[in-house]
């Protein structure tokens, strides 16, 4: 199980728990503002952009080549950017904090 903290664009902190699927799916199930996931989670739309808390980035890992390229469509891309449809919910990411980036 993983406990994940989302910080939305209006600085609201929401803590959610999940065991499976992607972080995007978990966010949508929990109505996290700013995570749309328009393409349904196949790394095609870049509407689930988050900045991973710096100290949590190692747990989450680097984006794949396709994901890194898609992130270039985003204005607020940083070295800690990820598309959260590409992050799997698992014990390994328990306790991470993600800042939601709304375009």
């Amino acid at each position: 199980m993983a406990k994940i903290t989302f910080i939305t664009a209006d600085n609201e902190e929401v803590i959610v728990e999940g065991t499976q699927g992607s972080v995007m799916e978990l966010a949508v199930q929990n109505n996290i503002k700013g995570i749309d996931g328009d393409c349904g989670g196949v790394c095609s739309c870049a509407t689930c952009h988050v900045h991973v808390n710096e100290s949590d980035f190692e747990k989450v890992g680097e984006p794949s080549e396709i994901e890194a390229d898609m992130l270039e469509l985003e204005d607020e891309v940083s070295e800690y950017s990820r598309l959260c449809c590409q992050i799997k919910v698992s014990d390994a990411i328990d306790g991470i904090t993600l800042k939601v980036i709304e375009e």
Binding site: G21, E25, V28, Q29, N31, G40, G41, V42
Partner: peptide
């Protein structure tokens, strides 16, 4: 996903919901 991942997976349709 209907013709792609959903067709080949055993996930329930709820996992594909646009919104809760």
């Amino acid at each position: 996903p209907l013709s792609k991942a959903y067709l080949t997976s055993d996930n329930p349709i709820e996992s594909n919901a646009l919104k809760s």
